[in-house]
Write a protein that binds this DNA or RNA. Sequence first.
DNA 1: TACATGCTTCGGCCACGACCGAAGTGTTCT
DNA 2: AGAACACTTCGGTCGTGGCCGAAGCATGTA
Lengths: 224, 224
Amino acid sequence: MAAVAALIGDPARANILTALLDGRALTAKELAFAARVSPQTTSGHLTKLTGAGLLALEKQGRHRYFRLASPLVGQMMEAVMAFAGPDEQPRSTWRGGEALRTARTCYDHIAGRLGVALADVLTERGHVALTSDGGEVTPSGHAFLHEFGAEPVPGKRVFCRPCLDWSERRPHIAGRLGVALACRCFELGWIARQRDTRALAITAAGQDGFAARFGLNVAEFGRA
Amino acid sequence: MAAVAALIGDPARANILTALLDGRALTAKELAFAARVSPQTTSGHLTKLTGAGLLALEKQGRHRYFRLASPLVGQMMEAVMAFAGPDEQPRSTWRGGEALRTARTCYDHIAGRLGVALADVLTERGHVALTSDGGEVTPSGHAFLHEFGAEPVPGKRVFCRPCLDWSERRPHIAGRLGVALACRCFELGWIARQRDTRALAITAAGQDGFAARFGLNVAEFGRA
DNA sequence: TACATGCTTCGGCCACGACCGAAGTGTTCT
DNA sequence: AGAACACTTCGGTCGTGGCCGAAGCATGTA
């Protein structure tokens, strides 16, 4: 336990893990950049992290791709962030923080102001009921999701789990429902991943779509 | 983030936090014993932990009681344990581990074999539906809980949250429902806290009670 | 074949921090 | 008042571990 926490406890390694938090696989070089240390040092860290089972490795040609070994790792990281907040990246007057707060991926679902706003709308309309402990989808919610095309994979009964947002300090929707919502939004081209950041771009189609279907004025998220 | 993880990452501090995981408040001396380091060293660790907001301090005469500052801290610890498992305590052929696996408190609810077994029974009987993401109580469950005297406090809608058990690797019941169940069991004298450990004692009344109301043969938990 | 690229291993430097003994402060008990 | 107790602060030692330069393997490309 202490050993794993100590691994996360090093700033360079914390940067590496944070960079992988959206579920993507990155090369050692990219991670060195994210960690802000030399490739040699990064290599050592990556060896330790994979050795401890935090990261999984996939070789591809002369590249080595690393990703989080399991969702458990992401949940662990988010739990720490929920208490501590993310590390400050002392870049030159870092504007990325603002973008991250607007919308970002949180392992496999949408977080940030957009994520929180979606949760709020769905709650207001009586589609889902969220509490600090869990959540459930109402019949009207099932109908809405079906029509929206974001039906979670069937099987077990509960679809969503609130995930405490470190920037907004309020829950957003994770779990199977969170995944389905995010997937559908990608599919519709409303949001798009960006290079080297977990921040999500909201497209023009997204501006219209979120307004029409969810009554959200996403332009507002940018300011504030 | 990294700073907080680094705090948990030291073995002595991890021991301290683990000792406080059941929600009790302990003195600096007791924590020094739990951490297996000298009182001087412990004092330093406690200063850091309280300074970072992980622990809360309450002075009482010449004693200083420390406890986890918020449930968020406990959740963070449990999330790390869910991935890493607890630290091995290299005591002389440590039998406490077995007791901990039988039944223990997990911040405010019941974990270990007893906790998992309770979750299983309630699921089998259709009283609750648990998934990896959340859970809910059925009408028959509400009736059963009412009759058992463990009605969760009213208000929000969802009562229970599955909490991954590091010893059993299966979920047990946390959340408001978990609290209510644990409280009722303490009230009935079925389980009792013990000194210097999170392990729970199952009383004779508990043996009968868990058998009569839940169909559990708790004697079995001891072996295996 | 020669060269570039991606990544790792080796070696040595350096700093941070965990640790305890001794001494100091404050509280309770008799 | 004096002793016992709970805890902290100070001072100094020591080990662990992060870091990078240089060199060493691979795997691609000209």
